[in-house]
Amino acid sequence: MIFLNINNLNVSIEGKKILDDFNLTINQGEVHAIMGPNGSGKSTLANVLAGNEDYEINSGKIIFKDLNLLDLNIEERAQKGVFLAFQYPVEIPGVNITPFLQSSINSKLKNAKKPELDNLSFAKLLRKKAEELGINTDMLKRSINTGFSGGEKKRYEILQMSVLNPEFAIFDETDSGLDVDALRIVTEGINKFKNEKNSFLIITHYQKLLDYIRPDHVHIMRNGKIVKSGDISLAGEIEESGYQNI
């Protein structure tokens, strides 16, 4: 099975080219990291994978679990196991976290033709996951991201991931804005979740996160394409001397 293969992908927005003949292959169970200067197209890549309809796909192909990913809409991709932890999670006042996540997981279970979770078993699951991540269960009564601090929003993205149990999770700067304790909790969460079935694409500006997570591959992205790939030592180089010499 091809897990994820992005082939010669060209993407633009409002006529401006952002991803330029982009290529990347991720196998099942692998952790990949992408670093790159501001505006190089990292979030664009993440959103194109998640199915955001604002972008124009000019050419190229994305295969995910032998499926043509570009044929699926946003929710179908999520149901098939794609998860994006947003760089800027959206506040949605009035939509309560608990029923929202319950509908999420149930739409996924339904799609997999598995029995859906009732209120009680879902509440138990959610509580357990929240406690594992050190998230105050009072937060679960609130509206999605509404009034959350920057760090709380990021933590809540991880909680959603751990409840939905995706096979392919993308983290778009989930480490930005976290205090040291939160960073530890988030990385422990990711590490606990990591296994031979799940793959990750981690977008970050900092070596620190990568030290905790130990990705299998590190890529440097610039002007819409990967310009260099290597192992974790590449992250150290960037931390020391920036993107100038790449």
Binding site: E53, N73, I74, A78, V90, V95, L101, S103, S107, Q160
Partner: peptide, 29 residues
């Protein structure tokens, strides 16, 4: 709100259902 709609759908909730959640939230008060 398109970004709210995208967020809900990216968690596997279909478009119609997501729309209903947003409308229900609009008059929650």
């Amino acid at each position: 709100d398109e970004s709210a709609l995208y967020y809900l759908r990216s968690r596997g909730i279909n478009k119609n259902e997501a729309m209903k959640m947003l409308i229900a939230s609009f008059i929650e008060d």
